[in-house]
Amino acid sequence: MNLAVKWQIFVSKMASEEYIILIFKGLKTTVKIAVFGLIIGIIIGTLVATVKVAPKYKLIVRILDKICAAYTAFFRGTPMVVQLLFAYYVILPLLGIKGVDAEIVGIITFGLNSGAYVSEIMRGGITSVDKGQFEAARALGLGYGTAMIKIVIPQAIKNIMPTLGNEFITLIKETSVLSFITVTDLFKAFKTIAEANRNYEYLIPYTILGLIYIVLVLIITLLVRIIEKIFAKSDRKAESPKKKAKEKVNS
């Protein structure tokens, strides 16, 4: 079959608006699960990282630290598919929970998985913040948590923005395994189209699918750049030489 014919088949399939809707639904699901997964991941990851860097004087901290280590090891050590299958087909039946939206399971699993990675990223971010920042906060009488939340973590997040962007990109691409637990994501949408009418024609749909992923990734990259720029506001190194010279005259 030549390309023209393949294209013809694709166009005829797309004539049915149900498939257009399906693509947008898949796109929405992909973005939704990746975004909420990342948000949950950042929250969990930050909490876990805070435990990881906390001084280990107290027993409770040591216990939490072990739990966090086990959590990280599990979610980094197993593939996302396995985690999804496990959550959906093992844990849910085991707990006797029925009627849970597979998308919710997807979001939670993505969040837990991402939390493990973000915790490592965040730990690196926290240790990259000058220790003096934390000490100055503590010396002013602020508690450990306040010093972390108000001073250290915001600077850590700024430092790890590019890496967090990569994590988001990974999550977007990983949504393609959601079809294993019956979620219709972007990949599933195009697979459905490719296999529609028992007319198995993959080339065009999967090419377009790939292009959409690339565009998504480019958009995220752009967004991360913009956010970095906004953050950089507090980092303007020295003013323009002109302004400085003026100040010298004034003083």
């Binding site: 000058d130 003096g132 100055a136 906060a137 010396a139 001073i151 600077q155």
Partner: peptide
């Protein structure tokens, strides 16, 4: 107990 450091340690953010 106020403390002033060699490296200032003003909060960058």
């Amino acid at each position: 107990i106020g403390m002033v450091f060699q490296n200032f340690n003003l909060f960058n953010n």
